[in-house]
Nucleic acid binder design. Sequence first.
DNA 1: TTATATACGACTTAATTAGTCTTATATATA
DNA 2: TATATATAAGACTAATTAAGTCGTATATAA
Lengths: 135, 135
Amino acid sequence: MLRLSKKSEYALMAVKYMALNQNGKCITVKEIAGIYGISFQLLAKLMQKLVKNNIIISQQGTKGGYMLNKQTKDILLADVISAIEENYSLTDCIESEDPEDSCARANCCIIRDPLAKVQQKINRIFAETTIKQIL
Amino acid sequence: MLRLSKKSEYALMAVKYMALNQNGKCITVKEIAGIYGISFQLLAKLMQKLVKNNIIISQQGTKGGYMLNKQTKDILLADVISAIEENYSLTDCIESEDPEDSCARANCCIIRDPLAKVQQKINRIFAETTIKQIL
DNA sequence: TTATATACGACTTAATTAGTCTTATATATA
DNA sequence: TATATATAAGACTAATTAAGTCGTATATAA
């Protein structure tokens, strides 16, 4: 546990691949999926999420594909991961406005606040690492 | 998803509960499970894992139960979590001696090493936090 | 007009996590 | 020494989540 999903891994690979291989031209899902042996349909939807989060831009049609929308120094690990995972946190209750909704034990829980602090430290790590740093 | 398992949550709650409530006497699984609404059988097996990792000691029979085996300042978050989770890492391949075993993409993967560095930082957080700090 | 690319919701399958059932063993105490 | 109470532990089932697939729509360069 405490594992990144395959989806996040794929998205990260795709972003890094684009950073290394786009030279003013579009890169297709087919190309990335082919090289890394990732399901085409699955990766396609991850790319769409990256578009919605303004990390990449898309060009439809022939000669289409994707390009990074920012410089690699301006794309954070946190950006990519949070674009893919709805919420990434140690527990369900952390980062939910009303803890009672996500946990029946919210009233007697003794680890929520301590884990929330740990969460902040983890968030900091992901927010301090850029794509440029991992090229 | 980067989530802690319920098992780790329960184990953490149990350890903190024992730290706060044991006063030289044993605390039973029944007591902890009852207070927090945790499955008795499930918590029982988590306690057994904590015993095997020398975090707590057990006393069988009537008047039996569990007691912490160390001072709270000497029990790390990392100790408790790694006692419960077989391996907690961002990816399957990190911390496996032979990455090829756990991943078909090991030969072409471009994110393994960067994520391994992130992993080290996360490990540091868990290894720097003691139970005493979260009481 | 055609080939090629993304967009996206619905669905299925696979894997993992959480929880249960059952039986065995240890021990304080009446 | 019998009994009640507690832990020990493997096998199993249920529930949840993650991963992957299918089908159809839309955009665009040539």
